[in-house]
């Protein structure tokens, strides 16, 4: 621990400096006339006849995107279009992060550990060093018996809410193109069902209902589907992540990407939650209650 006396004032001065310069920049940002203020884009005119609208006088990326949105995509929600269409590649990267987090957390939390390899690989400085104190994840027996869940109300509420939560999540995913929402938001909502099940039935319930390996595999498969939709553009002689608008005019390939991401996020977040809960392993009482009844 660095106990030098100067460290606290230095830290305080640094934080104050960051804050002051940030505030000065904030005043400047709020005061400067924005490059894009959107006022020149009358969206009602745009909505009526997108093709006739002249976007040569656009005053920013956003104006162009808004103009192009009605003309070249099938979606009404411009944020959705930005996420899955104009910046679909970023979204791809974003879902990669989720896979990375899952693979990483699986590797870090793996129970079997690396005992065999650690023995071969050796540890640093094994001479004259105290052995590591190993503490179990599990809460001790005492607090376990003390705290007992009263699950009846929670169970009933969860049983009642589970279908709604799932349907609501998938509604948000599937209607992302039309209304606020999309794959990420809906996926997280749908993954909330894991927590509902956990609250009502504990870890045993989760183990009974969810198959975490299947979730992991299917989530990876959803990601592969996303990449393949992107690669379809190259196969068709166009660029990666090309957005095909299907003939009817209300469907586009970005919507398939949205659905893939929706499933991917739902399965991925569920997987993460299950892994965390398994690692903490605080199954308290509920399983015992079940055994009694």
């Amino acid at each position: 621990m660095n106990d030098s006396r100067a460290s606290k004032p230095v830290l305080a001065v640094s934080l104050l400096l960051i804050l002051c310069i940030g505030l000065a920049a904030a005043i400047r940002m709020a005061g400067s006339a924005p490059t894009y203020d959107g006022r020149s884009t009358d969206v009602s005119v745009l909505q009526q006849d997108a093709h006739a609208y002249d976007d040569s006088g656009a005053d920013g990326v956003a104006a162009v995107m808004v103009n192009e949105n009605n003309e070249k995509t099938a979606a009404d929600n411009v944020v959705y279009s930005v996420v899955f269409n104009y910046r679909g590649y970023d979204t791809l990267g974003e879902s990669f992060i989720l896979i990375g987090a899952i693979a990483g957390t699986t590797a870090i939390l793996r129970k079997k550990g690396n005992k065999a390899s650690a023995a071969i690989v050796g540890t640093r400085g094994d001479a004259g060093q105290e052995p590591l104190k190993v503490v179990s994840y599990r809460t001790d027996q005492k607090s376990r018996t003390k705290y007992r869940r009263k699950p009846v109300i929670v169970k009933c509420a969860a049983d009642f809410l589970l279908p709604f939560a799932t349907v609501y999540g998938w509604y948000i995913i599937l209607h992302g193109a039309m209304s606020p929402g999309g794959g990420f938001q809906g996926g997280v909502l749908a993954a909330g069902t894991v927590l509902l099940v956990y609250l009502a039935y504990g870890l045993t319930g989760i183990r009974k209902v969810f198959h975490s390996h299947f979730l992991h595999y299917s989530e990876t498969a959803a990601e592969i589907v996303y990449v393949c939709i992107g690669l379809a553009g190259i196969a068709a002689g166009l660029h990666f992540c090309f957005n095909f608008v299907f003939p009817a005019g209300r469907e586009e390939s970005a919507m398939l990407m949205n659905d893939a991401v929706g499933y991917h996020v739902m399965a991925g977040i569920s997987c993460l939650l299950i892994m965390m809960l398994e690692a903490l392993d605080t199954d308290d009482g509920s399983s015992r209650e079940e055994k009694k009844s």
Binding site: G38, Q47, A62, R87
Partner: peptide, 17 residues
């Protein structure tokens, strides 16, 4: 969002990016 029936003349959007 280009919601049908909600867009009135003179309206403009915030930056979606």
């Amino acid at each position: 969002i280009f919601t049908a029936g909600e867009i009135h003349p003179g309206m403009f959007f915030v930056d979606p990016v």
